[in-house]
Amino acid sequence: MNLKRNKVLLLFLIPGLILYSIFFIIPTINAVIYSFTDWDGLSPDYNIVGFDNYINILTNDSIFLKAMGNNLKFMLFVLIFQTGFSLLFALFLIKNTKTNVFLRALYFFPTILSSVSVAFIWSFVYDPNIGILNTILGYLNLEFLQQSWLGNQNIAIYSVAVTQVWFHTGQMLVIFVAGLQAIPKDLYEVANIEGASRWQRFRYVTWPMIAPSATIVMAYTTIQSFKAFDLIFAMTRGGPNYSTEILATLIYTTAFRSFEFGYASAESVLFMIIIAIITVLQFRILRASKVQE
């Protein structure tokens, strides 16, 4: 009876599993296989080169290291500001009053736009000649702050990071609000009776109770910042001079601009490993800090 039921249920898997195998599992395995070749993506044959691609990337490729550095700068900036702002605004907007619900919906709004649209809007904000930001700085007599926000190699990656924070803070805020609303009210009553200050209430009640939401927000923000391909591609294409190149855009450029499929595959396998390491570390750290509370 149970076996018969399983047989019928196996039929339910067929369409999804076939598509998933062909268009997801096999390509992922192939990425690993290609990474050991020197394939250019065009010619029919290629050579197996063993770990050469990996060795080259790790010892001899300044652009890959730069992209990784950019990725970390971008991630840290977004992680700090997006988590900070979304938690702060969630604390402000915790009650379900009409104004608060409206503001949450307003802050959430950018999330539904496409990365390409957001990239265009912010290219206009940052435009050195007619941009919104420089114009406003001009009105405020702060001309000395005016910048070529996306053209200056030293700050371009942070300009894009600000856009990313604008794009997704509202989304993270909603997760924090849900977490905050789930905290039992009596905990705060006890804290009040014991004469806890505002900061102590946050430190000893809110923060430990919000840890699960914080885990989700930080894990998601990290992964999202590694996947910011669309935004960066539409905003800067990784330029100027690789200053906004992150791993995701670098893999694309290596494969489809330089036609080094084998080499790009090795980059993508390393990319996958880096993301896996960061995810594991993050959960370890957050779990450890939760146990201590």
């Binding site: 096999i26 192939n30 590694f226 993508s268 990319f271």
Partner: peptide
Amino acid sequence: LGMMVPAQVNMIPLYQL
């Protein structure tokens, strides 16, 4: 497990396919 794999990882073989 598929949720862990970013799109850029398999885009090259996927393009080929």
